[in-house]
Amino acid sequence: MSKPRVAFFDFTCCEGCQLQVANFGETLLDILNLIEVVTFREAMSEKSEDYDVAIIEGSITTEHDVERIKHIRSRAKVLVAYGSCATIGGINGMKNKFPLDEIGKYVYQDKAKHFPTLPTRAVHQVVKVDYFVNGCPVYQPEFVKVLKCILAGIPYAVPDYAVCVECKLNENVCMYDKGITCLGPVTKAGCNSWCINNGNICYGCRGMVTNPAKNGQMDILKKFNIALDWIINKLDMYNKPRELDERK
């Protein structure tokens, strides 16, 4: 079996998720036994238009992005949304809280007209996505898992339950016991509660579970005396483009 040709592409993002690949260390050598990387701006100068698997980092924020992602989709057998920006819109989505003109002027001032922009969209909101690797940045072991699924030609399902599930299995002290608000209860698992294991809170970078209990969550905010707009701000840091899915 010839190795599948894999190309990495970045859209609106920080390229930090691709850096996670470069940071793999020895595992990277094992991975390179299985795939042939043909385009990877961060680590190589060669480029190729001939690829089987397209790994997309970043969200879709301009007309040019739209054309480019459609072109990639048409060439790739398998398309992977890679990282928060690609899977859920990510922090670029915060832009969607403001009128486009206003936010353009705020960033580019009188040059704004030279930078036309669209509301931030996740990749699946523009083209069909075959695999999702959530997270900001992606969780390396999960990426390896997805890669193996791609190679085996089987689907990968992102766990559709809360980060709390994995966090409990890791026996972390709950952030709420520490008096700290954490987005674990509404965020999809799959990261092995990476942040909480390391003393940080969950920022919701993997997107919300598909069926969050809205009333129950509001109830909890009240009980813990957390202001609604404050938590919405926190959620919107990564999850704002979710509204585009809901409107469908």
Binding site: A162, C164, V165, K168, N211, A213
Partner: peptide, 13 residues
């Protein structure tokens, strides 16, 4: 039903 958020804490512990 109205209160539970299905975080799974109760069964895991």
């Amino acid at each position: 039903d109205a209160r539970c958020i299905a975080c799974g804490n109760c069964t895991n512990v």
